[in-house]
């Protein structure tokens, strides 16, 4: 599955930070979708640049019980309106493609005729 589609899909439900996106995508696909960090973070950077997602930083305490303890920051991502639109387009394209493949495999599309044409010209 395309990584961008996976990210759009998991972020359509809730705001998440990078590692949580990886885990959500894996959980949602029963472990089939593995978004490695080397792909995920450049992808998120690109999607943010395109305005598909928005981000905010949140401080994470090193020690939850210690008010003064400062820890890392975490970057949370959420879907923008543009991202939501992109997701809808991708889902539509995905479904159309599969419908086309189904029709093709059942032999009911115009593809057979097209392919015959290809054979005639190629022969």
């Amino acid at each position: 599955m395309e990584p961008e589609l996976a990210v759009l899909a998991v972020l359509s439900e809730e705001s998440l930070y990078g590692y949580a996106i990886t885990k959500a995508a894996a959980a949602r696909s029963r472990g089939e979708i593995k978004l490695g960090p080397g792909v995920l973070y450049p992808l998120l950077a690109g999607m943010e640049k395109q305005g598909l997602i928005l981000s905010t930083w949140e401080a994470v305490k090193a020690d939850p019980d210690d008010e003064a303890a400062t820890g890392r920051r975490r970057k949370w991502y959420r879907l923008s309106a543009k991202g939501r639109k992109r997701l809808e387009q991708r889902i539509k394209a995905h479904r159309e493609y599969h419908a086309m493949m189904e029709a093709f495999l059942e032999g009911g599309s115009g593809l057979g005729r097209r392919a015959e044409g290809a054979k005639e010209v190629g022969s």
Binding site: Y17, P37, R72, R73
Partner: peptide, 8 residues
């Protein structure tokens, strides 16, 4: 980027 990757 470094901070985000290290956190990951």
């Amino acid at each position: 980027i470094r901070e985000e990757l290290e956190s990951h």
